[in-house]
Design a protein around this nucleic acid. Structure first.
Lengths: 334, 334
DNA sequence: CTGTTAGCGCTTTCAG
DNA sequence: CTGAAAGCGCTAACAG
């Protein structure tokens, strides 16, 4: 391993001068800099980031901690990465829930030390988990649940999104609309908030709210969505619309409806939430609530950078607006 | 910040005894250990991993470096994470290609120092990039291109997979099959290897190979797949089957075919590659070549762990087997 | 503009 | 089994 001292000797300068050339912290004479750079090239030197971190307390790295790497989180991470890099830092992804016993390892104070700041997706974490998270480190929470006041937090307008989607289907003739993947509780988490929006749209239209139309799913996978949809069909409960809590669940519903010969949107209208890529391409196009990934990413990174720059400010709780994207799965679409 | 010295003072022992308790490197008397643990609890101490790394040269962390976080790589990462954690280490994801000038930043020797080992997806990297990658660090390459011999490498049976999918469609009556997302070159990268398999299936069936049926796409997105498919339809080139180089491209083709009123599989059979979740659920079910994520993950992690354990062995070049999963988009399916 | 000194928090080595 | 000393590679602070 070649160290800074080796470069210094090769260039005939002190170690500090090498450090100043590489980190651009203090000005160095052009001629000296050239000698140093030549030595760096000649020896193939690269700075030891661990030593820099220990001494300078800075990693130039931000973590995005997610419950799983795929689908929604992967797409969001791809939006976040360029914004972090524009600030001269590097983004890495960690995941919380690989196995039950390691569930919180990514959030330990020890691991968070690796990063200048942390974006933390709170899906799957409970209040106790959050209380245990270090509060000295710049951190921004993302996700659909109530969090302690002390954290900056960006969430979606879940209720409004669900209301928009449901009202749209009512407007185009549906009267018996399932809330697939929603729950009846009032925990202010994603499945309950979206159920509340669905409910409000029904009430606004003067339609009775029947709790049998709220159908939970286990894990928000397409497989679970399909299973739940097949169960409903088999039960004989009449329905002419489906609001699915996520596009991934909606995709499962699409499969189940097709298997049972129910036509979308003629027999059943269908709308999802998140506006993932798949919503655009699965025939006949899935009407979906756009979660505005880009805007959420920009807001969250902005809040994080404000903290990392050391500008003190009270924690903000941002509710990002959503909008309905109408496609062929509802009768207002193409 | 509470340091090991603080714990030592609180427990009335030396710093070294605390270190030995926490790292379990040397045995410590039960009574002493208990005093140390009590002090750790009382002060809320957590070890500084950066200092440990600088001194001990070990991070207990593995990086999976990918070109983008979504779709294929996200799904694969979710398979890899538990395997790494079973070995007592932690997995993080980094991405290479946020912007052209940062392309190699994640791969710089400097960044690789952060990790005990690296799984590196080679999509988007060329030979020069790979030559520049440190060879002293445990590293396993993943992906569909030729790599220098000195690296351990896991790739898929691309040619065989494409041949299987194409032969299956021929067997069920297609004669004019597009290779969507493939290329005519012979660079031994994913689009060319899959084209070669497509070609072999055609030749085996005595069908002439017409280069007009090889239709490249720009970025392997669904949007590009749809655009390319629409262009082919508009051109009037007759076809009765589509082999798409990836499921994501196939999803774009599904959209385009539906928009133009072409029925799958009656008018056109369609098969993809990767067997992503979406293939199972998009009606009528997408026949796809299963890339065996689980097996690829296990093989790659096994090779990496062999290196990290210091067991010397010549670099291996593994070609992971694939199999065809038949669904409703081809006439052999349900 | 350049060099010297000190020390980030931990673990390796060696002595008791 | 426990402790004291040394130093991993780098940069903050200060002196010249």
């Amino acid at each position: 391993m070649v160290r800074m001292a080796d470069v210094a000797r090769e260039a005939g300068v002190s170690v500090m001068t090498v450090s100043n050339v590489l980190s651009e912290r203090l000005p160095v004479a052009d001629q000296t800099r050239a000698r140093v750079m030549a030595a760096v090239e000649a020896l193939g030197y690269e700075v030891n980031l661990t030593a820099r971190h220990l001494r300078a307390g800075r990693t130039d790295t931000v973590a995005f901690v997610v419950p799983s790497f795929h689908d929604y989180f992967g797409e969001l991470a791809d939006k976040i990465a360029p914004l972090i890099e524009a600030g001269g830092r590097h983004l890495v992804l960690e995941r919380t829930s690989a196995s039950p016993e390691h569930e919180m390892a990514a959030l330990s104070v020890a691991r968070l030390q690796f990063y200048d700041g942390v974006l933390l997706s709170v899906a799957g974490l409970d209040s106790d988990d959050l209380e245990r998270v270090s509060s000295s480190k710049p951190i921004v929470l993302l996700g659909e649940r109530d969090v302690p006041d002390r954290f900056n937090h960006v969430r979606l307008a879940n209720e409004e999104g669900a209301r928009l989607a449901t009202a749209h289907m009512i407007e185009h003739g549906s009267r018996r609309i399932l809330a697939l993947g929603c729950t009846l509780d009032t925990t202010h988490m994603m499945p309950s908030d979206r159920r509340i929006g669905w409910e409000r749209a029904l009430r606004d239209a003067g339609i009775d709210v029947d709790p049998r139309y709220v159908v939970p799913v286990a894990n928000f996978t397409s497989a679970d969505g399909r299973d739940a949809m097949l169960d409903v069909i088999a039960s004989g409960l009449p329905f002419d619309g489906v609001f699915a809590a996520t596009d991934i669940v909606a995709l499962g519903a699409v499969a189940a409806l097709a298997e049972r010969g129910l036509r979308v949107p003629v027999d059943v209208q269908l709308a999802g939430f998140d506006n993932l890529d798949v919503a655009r391409f699965v025939p006949p196009g899935l009407t979906s609530v756009d979660a505005n990934h880009q805007g959420v990413a920009e807001t969250a990174v902005g809040l994080l950078q404000r903290q990392m720059e050391g500008r003190p400010a009270p924690a903000e709780h941002v509710v990002a607006p959503v909008r309905l994207v109408v496609r062929g799965s509802t009768r207002g679409g193409a």
